[in-house]
Amino acid sequence: MTLMVRNLSFAYSFRDILKNVSFQTSQGEILAVLGPNGVGKTTLFRCILGFHRHYRGSILVQGREARTLNSRKLSSDVAYIPQSHGHAFNYSVLDMVLMGTTSSINPLSVPGKRQEETAYDALARIGAEHLAGCSFSHLSGGEQQLVLIARALAQKAKILLMDEPTSNLDYGNQTRILQQIRLLADYGYTVLLSSHNPQQALWYADNILAMEDGSVVAFGTPDDVMNSNLLKTLYGIDIALVHSDYGTLLAPQLFGDHDTSRGEKLHATMDR
């Protein structure tokens, strides 16, 4: 068990954000955390990353309680891949990836030749070594996301936490990033990602953790837990599951309940 969360509860100034959350992941798994905005996905991640230490329950990272580890120790087990965003200062891609090696070097030194090799290896693994010399802010959103993944790989942590890795990306880049993530999981990384797209979870995840108002409403393999009821609970809309040769596809109802007539009319037009 690389990551085990048991009865995790967390409150922000008397407001319960997480209630009795329990789940676990094994090496080489992708766990997709699903749920609408504000259900506590981010808070869950922040607890695992050690930002919030006054939680109840336990978070075991490779068997050690997360809150007892300092940021340096925790960072050797868990790497965080944020959504790409602007920074106050600009760095080259190589420097950006080198930052991932920070916890492996003496805090009073600077990364040297060995760390540079690590950084190039990390870039090569995700097929982005040609970007090494570019300046980070000049890259497209998809490239930036790849570089941030490379930075996490350079950190040499086995658990990767990704905060909505495909948001702000175009359709092609979304798929490319997810393919990369799948490869990394197959290589032995444990990936925890939050997502707003249940279809992606269905395609790429080994397990799904569905959250509603701070609690877990479903945890298991996509085949076991994904159904119309769950999707209705999470998103409040009707979504049909269509089983096909290309996996299970989600078909959301295109028009709201109040306006079914318009949908029927459209279908009627299309039939003709």
Binding site: S71, R72, S75, P82, H87, S103, P107
Partner: peptide, 18 residues
């Protein structure tokens, strides 16, 4: 070097061991 890492933001720096 720690200061360089800190420039990209508190939380990201923290997840990298700063």
């Amino acid at each position: 070097w720690q200061v360089t890492v800190l420039t990209i933001g508190d939380e990201e720096a923290r997840t990298m061991g700063v």
